[in-house]
């Protein structure tokens, strides 16, 4: 696995990377315009069909779990302790009270994380890193800058692999991973010293290789992977523009009369995250347990 990119044949995959980048910007902007939990929830649900269309539902759900962790934390801790809250909604054991204003604040924040996360995951999973680089170049981003971005995508998995190799080699020489804190900090040296050296060596080699292929030559460069904005992209962009206009209209003229957010909605979304979180924990525990049972026979 070189990056999170999932090569699939779908409408979303065939969009131009620039369209998808604008899409991410659009989602970020929307999540700030719609600072109302109910509307954000609607928006989040509305994004899901795109994930289905891109055929990345399963990997999406796996990666969104981590963001859900944040959502659970924010909603619980802020709901109880954020000082802006005055109106109590309900109480749980030990007199901890969830308050309306804090819950609104927490929900807006966590939904925003989930919405932006969904867009980002969708973008990364459906866009080949090289396509993104060549699209950036078309936007007059300097070629070297696009390359820096691209190589960042590539070097992370490389370093991860090297780190694993170094760690195994040191483990084979029985680097002790237990012990006191000082001992553990000391143990980082045999891990990271070789890793740094390997990384520097690789980067050094890379620079030679690049020079051999005339990287610093001036003038226009062509790209192996061409991207093109087609009618599909225009449709998509128009759609985004329409939604954005509607959001702004909503924000400017209807916010006063619209009361979608209720105690029930807040409470249910809080419980919802708890339940999903609970399932994640149960799944994790069961998996650990199965590993033990499965190995026994």
């Amino acid at each position: 696995m070189n990056s999170l990119y999932m090569p699939k044949d779908s409408l979303i995959h065939s969009l131009d990377p620039r369209t998808k980048m604008l899409f991410v910007v659009f989602v970020v902007a929307s999540s700030f315009i719609l600072n109302d939990p109910a509307l954000q929830l609607v928006f989040l649900v509305a994004l899901f069909p795109l994930v289905v269309m891109a055929k990345v539902v399963k990997p999406y759900l796996i990666s969104i779990q981590f963001l859900l962790l944040f959502a659970v934390l924010i909603m619980t801790v802020h709901g109880i302790y954020n000082p802006i809250g005055v109106t109590p909604v309900f109480e749980i054991f030990g007199g901890l009270t969830f308050k309306y204003e804090s819950m609104v604040y927490a929900s807006v924040m966590s939904f925003r994380i989930l919405v932006i996360g969904t867009a980002a995951v969708l973008f990364v999973m459906t866009t080949h890193p090289s396509d993104m680089a060549s699209a950036l170049v078309k936007w007059k981003v300097p070629h070297s800058f696009a390359f820096i971005l691209l190589s960042t995508f590539q070097i992370i998995p490389i370093i991860a692999r090297e780190a694993k190799i170094v760690m195994e080699a040191q483990q084979a020489r029985c680097l002790d991973v237990k012990g006191s804190l000082i001992q553990r900090v000391k143990n980082l040296v045999p891990m990271f010293a070789p890793l740094f050296i390997i990384t520097f060596m690789k980067v050094h080699q890379l620079s030679y290789v690049l020079e051999c292929r005339a990287f610093s030559r001036k003038g226009e460069k062509t790209s192996l992977r061409e991207t093109k904005i087609g009618s599909l992209d225009y449709t998509f962009l128009l759609g985004m523009l329409g939604v954005l206009a509607f959001e702004i209209y909503l924000k400017l003229f209807m916010m006063g009369s619209l009361h979608l957010t209720t105690d029930a909605l807040l409470t249910y979304s809080l419980f919802g995250t708890w339940i999903v979180f609970g399932f994640m924990i149960i799944k994790f525990v069961v998996k650990q347990f199965q590993g033990k049972i499965g190995g026994a026979n």
Binding site: E162, I165, V166, E168, A169, Q170, Q171, A172, R173, C174, D176, V189, P190, A193, P194, I197, I198, G291, K292, G294, G295, A296
Partner: peptide, 29 residues
């Protein structure tokens, strides 16, 4: 070594089994 149980004394196993990995010079520090 099996999936079911953790090997006791893995440290002394590793003392007895020396492994030279591919490109072992990368583990010098």
């Amino acid at each position: 070594i099996s999936a079911a149980e953790k090997t006791k004394d893995i440290k002394s196993l590793r003392e007895k089994v020396g492994v030279v990995f591919q490109y072992p010079e990368h583990q010098l520090f």
